[in-house]
């Protein structure tokens, strides 16, 4: 599924997250990168260096927006002012699709700045799908939801996480940003089979894939984005590609960020798995 209506019928390859420590390298050396993913919130501002840098990047590269604070799973309706700022950025970047997380994180205007886990109930799926539809209609761009890493589960849940994901995307008729590392992290934290999760994902809705590294502790795994991708996650990625076809893939590295070359080389390891699925 290299191109579908959920990624604007594009066929993007392997990209990396655009991060400040790499700005100088990218702008001066102009490395060959298929596309960059930006965190929308870092550019929802009125002026200054971030927007100037973004404009310079946009002159030479394809950029896709990824958000962290839309909180589709919050009970209240989306913040209209937030959506307006986001739409201004969408017009600037011309992002072919836009993603945010399947989570909640704010209550009555107070923000946790975290991606909090949801109770997997039909009611929550209904509310979340309403919010996703509202965002898509307002922003006028395909919207994808990303599965998050989680560390807690609710007694009230009526279904598994993958059933919940399916319920939301079917109700919202939206795409999926499939985070393979998050599936791995959550599978270890909640003792489920990550392949069962992957096998249940509607392949035709997958618009993009995320890869990242994480940190292992004695009793749980934390999604820290500060390590290379581990082999079990590459194996999951391999399986995902076999299911959904070559798909726009993005490596996230957000802490203890190494050189641009190292991050890019780590992302390009994904190439090993793409031709097989393409055959």
């Amino acid at each position: 599924m290299p191109a579908n209506r959920f990624n604007g019928f594009t066929d993007y390859g392997i990209g990396i997250g655009l991060r400040i420590p790499h700005y100088d390298h990218i702008l001066s050396r102009k490395p060959v990168v298929d596309w960059f993913e930006i965190i929308s919130e870092n550019f929802m501002i009125d002026g200054g260096r971030p927007l100037k840098t973004l404009d310079q990047i946009l002159e030479q590269y394809r950029v896709v927006q990824h958000g962290v604070s839309m909180y589709f799973g919050s009970a209240e309706k989306l913040n209209r002012e937030h959506l307006k700022k986001l739409k201004a950025l969408v017009k600037r970047t011309k992002t072919p699709w836009l993603s945010d997380h399947l989570c909640w994180g704010s209550v009555d205007g107070t923000y946790s700045h975290d991606l909090l886990p949801m109770p997997y109930t039909f009611e929550a799926a209904k509310v979340t799908a309403r919010n996703v539809r509202e965002a898509r209609d307002f922003l006028e761009v395909p919207v994808c939801v990303e599965n998050v890493s989680s560390y807690a589960e609710f007694h009230v849940s009526e279904m598994t996480e993958w059933e919940f994901l399916n319920e939301v995307v079917e109700r919202a008729d939206c795409g999926i940003l499939l985070d393979v590392n998050n599936i791995y992290v959550s599978s270890r934290n909640h003792s489920f089979n990550p392949y069962e999760y992957l096998n249940s994902v509607p392949a035709d809705r997958v618009a993009q894939i995320h890869l990242a590294g994480h940190s292992k502790f004695q009793k749980y795994i934390l999604d820290t984005h500060d390590h290379p991708v581990i082999d079990p996650v590459w194996k999951l990625y391999d399986h995902a590609i076999k299911l959904v076809g070559p798909t726009a893939t993005l490596l996230e590295w957000d802490d203890h960020i190494p050189s641009f070359e190292e991050v890019h080389a780590e992302a390009m390891k994904a190439e090993r798995f793409l031709p097989v699925a393409a055959v």
Binding site: H66, H113, H225, D255
Partner: peptide
């Protein structure tokens, strides 16, 4: 001092 940047989905240590 370093520039402020929000990361995606990463737990802060």
């Amino acid at each position: 001092h370093t520039e402020h940047e929000t990361a995606s989905n990463a737990v802060t240590k």
